[in-house]
Design a protein around this nucleic acid. Structure first.
Length: 888
RNA sequence: GGGCAGUUAGCUCAGUUGGUGGAGCAUCGCCCUUACAAGGCGGGGGCCACAAGUUCAAGUCUUGUACUGCCCACCA
């Protein structure tokens, strides 16, 4: 049943009501046995510590649009929501809270601390879910997952165990990235490199035999106590005699060899490199290669170890000052210069990362990467394709992935060491006894796994793996992964490796990488910069649909999104426009209008609108399918505002007032159909306002239905009518011409003028007759006369539309000079176009080499222009005469 | 040092197969025409960064240059 809509659109009430309706109805909870092609997406799980930011909002909006569109296309659609435990981030949050109470996690002990984190998660970890809900995400809440759910944790243990047994997970002592603040190892890609100003010290190392010295350059003098070699390029002439000799470490006086390796850059510094295998990734490699000593001089807290001799116990920064002073005092500091170099920082807390040697667990990513690389683009397509190169490059240069973290919050590594025999046991379930010696004295590894380890399993762990579930059967692989490109490697690549290894299939058919949302200046939004635009505040202020439409319209592939509040405000107007258009329509659609054969509908405006509707329908369908969200937004925007509202609603008003029942009936049914289908088209981007209007639209059977269940409208081939649409365009152009005359001559729009037209041919004459009423109404004229000869008062304003002369006699005090200027301007425009056209047509190559179609079109174009020029000239001349007479 | 984007109206951005450039906001003029002033109608405003090349034809394809941004990288 139709009911009147409230005067203004109030998003808040409408949105909250529909959220409730959809959740209660189970419309987003699919049955794996239901028919329809499967379509599935797993949400990029936000951190439980997170608050919704614009990046999430963009991600959710785009995924939701895809899912809603998929349902409209009859697909059996699943969108799995969930959150990530975010190991380091969450532990940091809780530790901060503890610090407020003057405690550390060690004061609580491991079990109590983990319990505390769980409590925190239960209390605050759902905020982000509520925020996702607020955006209208059509996720299936019955399948909500958390990376530390029992089932997902079991999946993690199974994966770990299997990879260990396959030799793809191993434990070893290596140099890793160490964050002294988070007190844990970090993976290579968790280190952010930033250019920092630093200094380069040149230090003299004396030779042990007293025969001279070699000068090295270093940015980190505090690591000097850990030096175990000096390295030069094997072909460096300066140092040939020194290779193989022994140098002395400054201050400490320890003897170290001078070795040669082609790794050294002769151009940099002095061409001589001090090698500190325990405190630099490259030096580590050199140390391994040349069998050097490994001396650790900085501990995991950033303090100097006993090995550092006189500096033991100092903070590494204090050590730097002291050792530089000492070296200088000994006369071995040659100079200090400024230099910029990249310094690694922890991606979580931004502390400077220290290369650190320790025993850690690794995934043999080097062995898993090739399959992931090969999967693209044959098995998985990446959009936009420009990312494929980056993908390949990263996977080709991958190093093994350090997965152990020295924190407490996360999946504890399922490995136990036997206190009796020292053997390592890895198992999915806690073993009761050592498999080797039978001892019950087993100690579990203290470390937890990198958060991304569990995220890597997300596409199948959320569907119930390792059990053979109906969900997996139905929805794995997922259809598309939608995420920001910033986690292409953290997450996407690792899901690909794990998915291929454990499922034997890629985890997703497509990867759509969307932009990062930036502020109006193009900066990354961040709390520290203070340039964050809060999506929920925007949704609250302008409505969720306006926010979503803005994000969709900004989401052009391969570009960053620069968000501004003004743009959101602009699209709120669009939402309002839709609302008001619907209000108007509903006034005339109290009852369901009887069906009419639309393919045979009368009325040029009806045919035109139905034709346009077909075009927009196909265009938007393709846009959604190809992830061109901005195109979908733009198509619908222009159609609704510039065609449906600006033209059709105005054109249909007389029909609705008419006594002619057939005419009124056709109008109502076309109006009903167009609005109804438009709502379906817009629904993926603007679910709330469209659902609300839909509810109010009358239905054939009279029952209320939910737009979220409605299918995408069928194509209506009989309504595709290029000719009629073009005819309507002609009528519209005539109307615009009259309006322009009035506006430019400052004739009040309300002044009912009369119009003379002089059509080009009988076809135009017929069209003008057909469009007579529309022209009279929309151009606000009192009469329209058609004449074979120009027979108008000379004092007329005029224009030419497609060769049809349009003359509006002027009366009263009008700006005659203004009309002359106006005609002059029109003529100039035509002149210019003629020149351009002639240039082409007089070009022999164009005539002979361009396709005939193009040439023919150009000829027609030129002819029309010449015709227009003649007619404009004639009109202008007549007018000039009139003006002259007037002056007399 | 590599790689990838971008450079279009005052601002923020579209522009799918090469065929005489669009939107929103801003701006100017007129209008409260009963869906909408969060509106209607009309206008102004662009050598599409620069330079070569391919082509009958280039915002669109190729190369180079400049600037901006991002990613990767072991120059101590």
């Amino acid at each position: 049943m139709a009911e009147p809509l409230p005067k203004g659109y109030e998003p808040q009430n409408v949105e909250s009501r529909w959220r409730g309706v959809w959740e209660d109805s189970g419309v987003f909870t699919p049955d794996p046995n239901a028919p329809g092609e499967p379509f599935s997406i797993v949400i990029p799980p936000p951190n439980v510590t997170g608050a919704l930011h614009m990046g999430h909002a963009l991600n959710i909006t785009l995924i939701d649009a895809l899912c809603r569109h998929a349902r409209q296309k009859g697909k059996n659609t699943l969108w799995i929501p969930g959150t990530d435990h975010a190991g380091i981030a969450t532990q940091n949050v809780v530790e901060r809270a503890l610090a407020g109470e003057g405690k550390t996690r060690r004061d609580l002990g491991r079990d109590a601390f983990v319990e505390r984190v769980w409590a925190w998660k239960e209390e605050y970890g759902n905020r982000i879910l509520d925020q996702i809900r607020a955006l209208g995400a059509s996720v299936d809440w019955s399948r909500l997952r958390f990376t530390m759910d029992d089932r997902l944790s079991a999946a993690v243990r199974k994966v770990f165990t299997q990879l260990y047994n396959e030799g793809l997970i191993y434990k070893g002592t290596y140099i890793i990235n160490w964050c002294a603040r988070c007190h844990t190892a970090l993976a290579d890609d968790e280190v952010e490199h930033e250019q920092r100003k630093g200094m380069l010290w040149r230090v003299r190392y004396h030779l042990a035999d007293g025969s001279g010295a070699i000068v090295v350059a270093t940015t980190r003098p505090e690591t000097i106590p850990g030096d175990t070699a000096v390295c030069v390029h094997p072909e460096d002439e300066r140092y040939q005699s020194l290779i193989g000799k022994t140098a002395l470490v400054p201050v400490l006086g320890r003897q170290i060899p001078i070795i040669a390796d082609a790794y050294v850059d002769r151009e940099f510094g002095t061409g001589a490199l001090k090698v500190t295998p325990c405190h630099d990734h490259n030096d580590w490699a050199l140390g391994k290669k040349h069998c050097l000593q490994f001396i650790q001089v900085i501990d995991e807290n950033g303090r100097m170890t006993q090995e550092s001799g006189p500096y033991a116990g100092l903070d590494k920064n204090a050590c730097r000052e002291r050792i530089v002073k000492d070296i200088e005092a000994a006369g071995n500091l040659l100079d200090v210069s400024d230099m910029e170099h990249a310094v690694g920082h922890c991606y979580r807390c931004h502390t400077v990362v220290e290369p650190h040697v320790s025993e850690q667990w690794f995934v043999a990513a080097t062995k898993l990467a090739p399959a992931a690389r090969e999967a693209v683009p044959e098995l998985t397509r990446i959009f936009p394709e420009s990312w494929i190169k980056t993908w390949n490059h990263w996977l080709d240069n991958i190093r093994d992935w350090c997965i152990s973290r020295q924190i407490w919050w996360g999946h504890r590594i399922p490995a136990w060491t036997c206190a009796a025999c020292g053997r390592l046991a890895v198992a999915e379930e806690t073993p009761s006894a050592c498999p080797a010696c039978g001892s019950g004295d087993l100690v579990q590894d203290e470390d937890v796994l990198d958060t991304w380890f569990s995220s890597a399993l997300w596409p199948f762990s959320t569907m119930g793996w390792p059990e053979k579930t109906a969900d997996l059967e139905r929805w794995y692989p997922t259809s598309v992964l939608v995420t920001g490109f910033d986690i292409l490697f953290f997450w996407v690549a690792r899901m690909m490796m794990m998915g291929l290894h454990f499922m034997g299939q890629v985890p997703f058919r497509h990867v759509y990488l969307h932009a990062l949302v930036r502020d109006a200046e193009g900066r990354k939004m961040s709390k520290s910069t203070g340039n964050v635009i809060d999506p929920l505040a925007m949704a609250d202020k302008y409505g969720c649909d306006a926010l979503r439409f803005t994000l969709a319209s900004f989401a052009a592939m391969g570009r960053d999104v620069r968000l501004s509040e003004e743009r959101i405000e602009g699209y709120r107007h669009f939402v309002n426009k839709l609302w008001n258009a619907a209000r108007f329509a509903l006034i005339h659609l109290e009852q369901m209008p009887p069906a009419v054969d639309l393919g045979a509908a009368r009325g040029l405006h009806n045919q035109w609108l139905l034709h346009r509707l077909e075009t927009v329908k196909t265009g938007m369908d393709a846009a959604f399918t190809e992830y061109r969200f901005n195109d979908a937004a733009q198509l619908s925007y222009k159609f609704l505002w510039n065609e449906f509202c600006d033209w059709y609603l105005e054109l249909v008003k007389p029909d609705l007032q008419s006594d002619d029942a057939e005419r009124t009936g056709t109008a109502k049914f076309v109006l009903w159909t167009a609005l109804r289908e438009l709502l379906v088209l817009l629904h993926p981007i603007m679910p709330f306002v469209t659902a609300e209007i839909w509810r109010c639209l009358p239905t054939p059977a009279g029952e209320v239905s939910d737009l979220a269940r409605e299918l995408w409208p069928e194509a209506r081939p009989a309504c595709v009518r290029e000719t009629e649409a073009d005819d309507m365009d002609f009528v519209r152009e005539v109307i615009v011409a009259v309006r322009t005359i009035k506006a430019e001559l400052n004739i009040a729009p309300s002044q009912k003028a009369s119009l003379l037209v002089h059509p080009l041919d009988s076809g135009q004459a017929a069209l003008l007759e057909t469009g007579r009423e529309m022209i009279l109404t929309l151009a606000r004229l009192e009469s329209l006369r058609m004449e074979k000869r120009l027979n108008a008062p000379k004092a007329s304003a005029s224009a030419v539309v497609r060769g049809c002369q349009i003359i509006m006699p002027l009366r009263g005090s009008v700006d005659l000079a203004g009309e002359l200027a106006r005609l002059g301007k029109e003529l100039d425009k035509v002149e210019k176009d003629i020149m351009a056209s002639n240039k082409k047509l007089h070009n022999e190559s164009f005539i002979t080499r361009a396709p005939e179609q193009v040439v023919e079109r150009e000829r027609g174009h030129a002819a029309a222009l010449r015709d227009a020029r003649e007619k404009l000239l004639a009109l202008k001349n007549r007018f000039s005469e009139a003006l002259a007479e007037d002056v007399k």
